[in-house]
């Protein structure tokens, strides 16, 4: 019970912060709606393209390399999540915990080296 209470007290401000952030943006938009002029002109609604008229929708295909970085990111972000609990508790366990993390990071380092060698880190 005490633990649940502590969690409630700790994360209540997080919820309130989300609400306050929403209210800030919403009230600013309402303020602009009240003060700013609005006119319905067809020409104002065209997409900006340095003076040209856009030919097709912008959401077409885009480069493959963005996906490569996303995949690498997922691998290493999961790794970081795994290191976080270790970082606080390895002092209590000692040498064994440290060297097992060395092996873990070493394996990931090999993976990074492989990606590097394969040219996945080179933007082209």
């Amino acid at each position: 019970m005490a633990q649940a209470d502590a969690l409630y007290v700790d994360y209540l401000p997080v919820l309130l912060a989300a609400i306050v952030g929403f209210v800030l943006v919403f009230s600013a938009l309402i303020g602009s709606r009240l003060l700013a002029p609005f006119s319905q002109e067809r020409e104002k609604g065209t997409t900006y393209e340095c003076g040209m008229l856009p030919l097709q929708r912008a959401s077409t295909n885009f480069g493959m390399r963005f996906y490569l970085y996303a995949i690498l990111f997922v691998v290493f972000d999961v790794e970081a999540v795994f290191i976080f609990p270790w970082a606080l508790s390895f002092m209590g366990i000692g040498q064994f915990a440290y060297w097992s993390m060395v092996v873990f990071i070493g394996i990931l380092g090999l993976g990074l080296g492989y990606a590097w060698k394969k040219g996945a880190l080179q933007w082209r």
């Binding site: 989300a18 306050v20 952030g21 929403f22 943006v25 602009s32 700013a36 002029p37 609604g45 856009p54």
Partner: peptide, 28 residues
């Protein structure tokens, strides 16, 4: 605050309108 607030005709209304919320709320 006093400037006209435009939205392009071809923009996706929901994503376009919710973008500022999704940027500002996490930062706050």
């Amino acid at each position: 605050v006093g400037k006209e607030d435009l939205r392009p005709r071809s923009a996706d209304p929901w994503t376009f309108e919710l973008g500022p919320y999704m940027i500002f709320i996490p930062i706050f």
